[in-house]
């Protein structure tokens, strides 16, 4: 199995997608030691070459963040570049979608789109793994990311052996689909104290922008 990974994050190498890919490959390489090429669509030259690389690959994994409950524009450009050709049905394509919001409902339309796209390309669809609640992992201490990274390593190990996503973790990652009533009640109560804005306010203050946080610069 010759695996190629496309990272579709506009944040390039400083992306959460890159961090998760690194963990996935740690696990993957325990069973398939051959180095796996990772191409970044945010890099113009790599984006230009991506369609040809896709054509040659046996198995493709695409990982990207959710942008407005869909793929980022940069990934859509890639899809346009690979569409219009019919590939070998032996080519396998899987997708990992990660998002800041924890609920997987945000990716429901996108998942249907990705399945249809892969079928349109005449390739074998390996599924879409959706993992929410990922924003902020770059600044978290190792104790907070250990579990998540461990699961991505297991996913990599399983993928190396089975050429598919480990079903148990895939299922767990999809939760919550929506927030429970209990969560909504707790969040609503906490939001009245302002604590739910704590993270944003901290960043705004750090940048000296707190006082301007409600600015409406584009209003006529």
């Amino acid at each position: 199995m010759k695996l190629v990974i496309f990272n579709g994050s506009p944040r390039y190498k400083k992306s959460n997608s890159a961090l998760l890919t690194e963990q996935f490959l740690k696990g993957y390489n325990r069973f398939c030691p051959e180095p796996v090429p990772v191409y970044y669509l945010a890099n113009y030259k790599q984006r230009e070459a991506a369609a040809e690389i896709f054509k040659q690959a046996e198995t493709v994994l695409l990982i990207f963040p959710l942008y407005t409950d869909c793929m980022p524009g940069i990934v859509k450009e890639f899809f346009e570049n690979i569409a219009g050709e019919s590939y070998s049905p032996a080519k396998k394509v899987g997708v990992i979608v990660q998002s800041g919001f924890p609920e997987s409902i945000h990716a429901e339309g996108l998942e249907r789109y990705l399945k249809k796209l892969v079928l349109r390309l005449n390739c074998e669809y390996l599924g879409t793994m959706i993992k929410g609640g990922v924003e902020g992992i770059q600044s978290m201490p190792p104790s907070m990311t250990r579990k998540l990274y461990g699961k991505f390593q297991v996913l990599g190990e399983y993928f190396a052996q089975n050429n598919s996503f480990e079903p148990g973790i895939t299922e767990k990652f999809r939760k919550p689909y929506r927030f429970s009533r209990t969560y909504i009640v707790i969040f609503t109560l906490l939001s009245k104290t302002g604590i739910t804005n704590f993270y944003w306010n901290g960043q705004l203050k750090k940048n000296g922008a707190f006082e301007k946080r409600f600015a409406r610069p584009y209003l006529d």
């Binding site: 869909c70 793929m71 524009g73 859509k76 899809f79 789109y113």
Partner: peptide, 9 residues
Amino acid sequence: AGFTSSALK
């Protein structure tokens, strides 16, 4: 490719 263009996206 089944969706609106990358220019719009």
